[in-house]
Design a protein around this nucleic acid. Structure first.
Length: 202
DNA sequence: GCGACAG
DNA sequence: ATCTTGTCGC
């Protein structure tokens, strides 16, 4: 008689995931960061925090962390729960210096982190298959730095790369688990909406 | 030297 | 990032 095999319990050690995002007001120079922690199994909100500040650094491709980190750190410090993983808006290792926003955020917090970007950056890539879960490698100088991942059938893919203390397979699986219905992970969708809403409400 | 370039 | 409502399509 054989033991009963449990259905794949995706990443049992990851119960919560936090989405991070920053919205800006080009006129006033105000920046609002939002961090939203979701329960991975139910995708319900566990905690949501925000922080506002002044833009202190211009947008320079490759130096995004210097622009977003200050206000993002302020928001992260307001969390009362510690998420199991941080999902950043942008790149991790698939960066010209191999150290994008997700790497900075991970090292500063000491938490596992990875990035999910919406558009290609400096890495080379091939078009992944049309199905949800199909992916192709993101490469630079012959190194695999991330994946172009299709989260929804026949929908433009996202760009996943490791930031800190997570491997690419896990980052890929988490991205899919967080995107059951839309192109972007629920974590980033929530963080994006919250930061944008707070920015507008003033 | 020129172009491309996360948010 | 941001400018921005309704609308075409499954």
């Amino acid at each position: 008689m054989r033991e009963r095999v449990e259905p794949a319990a995706p990443l049992p050690l990851v119960r919560t995931a936090a989405g991070l995002d920053v919205s800006y007001d080009g006129e006033t120079g105000r920046a609002v960061a939002a961090v939203v922690v979701l329960d991975l199994a139910t995708l319900t909100v566990v905690e949501a925090v925000t922080a506002a500040g002044e833009v202190s650094f211009p947008y320079v491709p490759g130096l995004l962390a210097f622009r977003e980190l200050p206000v993002l750190v302020d928001a992260l410090e307001r969390l009362t729960v510690t998420p199991d993983v941080l999902v950043c808006d942008g790149y991790g290792m698939a960066h010209p210096r191999r150290f994008g926003l997700a790497c900075h955020v991970g090292v500063l917090t000491g938490l596992p982190a990875f990035g999910v970007a919406k558009t290609p950056f400096t890495s080379a890539h091939a078009e992944p298959g049309p199905g949800r879960g199909d992916w192709s490698p993101l490469t630079e100088d012959g190194e695999v730095l991330g994946r172009v991942l299709r989260t929804q059938p026949k929908v433009k893919p996202v760009f996943v790369s490791v930031g800190h203390r997570v491997d690419l397979d896990t980052a890929t699986a988490l991205t899919l688990a967080l995107s059951p219905r839309f192109r972007l992970p629920e974590t980033t969708r929530h963080a994006d909406q919250l930061s944008r809403r707070l920015l507008a409400a003033r």
